[in-house]
Simulated scan of single mutants.
Amino acid sequence: MPTIFERLYSGELPCARVYADEHVFAFMDAGQLNDGHVIVASIRPYETLMDADEETAAALMRAARRIAIAVEREFSADGVTVLQANRAAGWQTVPHLHLHVLPRRAGDAVTLGWPRRDPPFETLQALAARIRV
């Protein structure tokens, strides 16, 4: 069964498209946390960033950058949050690779936070050794 983003891309469902290339497309989020909130999604139905090929992952960020520049300019944003989530535990709500470009305003009440733990430097070195690529 196609994902909602596949249905949007194919035209089965309407979307206010702002960008498309051979790997990704972007459209206004129907939820609009702030005016100018855009979703950039892969055309192929990869579930997560880790499933995507490198070309698609790079295209996702290239498009996000271009859109963030336009959003910041056109909506006079104080800043821009780019959010990409993977799997339910990582806050992903749609099982199709995408990211949000969200224009921000000081005091806009949009929140995102986590508790900081501040491990010792030696712990950071050990963690880095486990994933060094």
Rank of each mutant, 00 (worst) to 15 (best):
C15R: 11
S76A: 15
Y19F: 14
E55Q: 11
L33N: 13
R17P: 00
T56W: 03
E72P: 08
V18G: 04
S10D: 09
I67Q: 04
T48W: 03
A58H: 10
A20I: 08
S42A: 15
S76M: 12
A57R: 09
S10T: 13
P45Y: 01
A77K: 05
A20F: 03
R62V: 11
R62E: 11
I43F: 04
D53N: 14
Y46F: 15
Y46K: 03
R17D: 01
A77F: 12
A68M: 06
G79I: 06
I39R: 03
E12F: 09
P14I: 07
I67N: 01
V80S: 05
L60G: 00
G31N: 14
H37Y: 08
Y9E: 14
G31W: 08
T56V: 14
P45L: 02
L13Q: 11
R17Y: 07
I39Q: 09
V38E: 06
A16C: 09
F27L: 03
I43K: 10
E55L: 06
M28D: 06
Y46M: 08
A52I: 09
E72R: 15
T48N: 11
V24T: 03
Y19R: 00
S76V: 11
E72V: 02
R17K: 15
V80A: 03
A64H: 02
R66C: 10
A20D: 07
A59N: 00
G79Q: 06
H37E: 08
V80G: 02
V38I: 15
A20E: 15
V38Q: 05
R73V: 04
Y9Q: 12
A63C: 11
Q32K: 04
V80N: 02
E22Q: 11
V80L: 09
E54Q: 13
T48V: 10
R44V: 12
V71D: 08
D21A: 03
M28N: 02
F75K: 15
F25S: 02
L13K: 12
D29C: 07
L49P: 03
H23L: 03
H37L: 10
R44W: 07
V24M: 00
F27G: 04
E12I: 04
A64C: 05
E54N: 13
I69Y: 06
E54P: 14
R62T: 07
A77E: 04
A77P: 12
A57T: 05
L33P: 11
E47V: 14
V24Q: 01
A70G: 12
I39D: 05
G11Q: 05
G79R: 01
A20R: 13
N34T: 12
R62N: 08
V40E: 03
V80W: 04
H23S: 07
L60F: 01
R73A: 14
A41T: 09
E54F: 04
V24D: 00
A57P: 02
F25Q: 04
P45Q: 10
D29I: 02
M61S: 08
A77R: 06
A16P: 01
T48K: 10
D35Y: 06
N34K: 07
S42I: 09
M50Y: 13
A63E: 05
D51A: 14
E74L: 13
I43E: 03
E72D: 13
E72F: 08
A57S: 14
V80R: 06
L13M: 12
A26P: 01
A41C: 10
S76Q: 15
I39V: 15
A16L: 13
M50C: 12
A16F: 10
T48D: 07
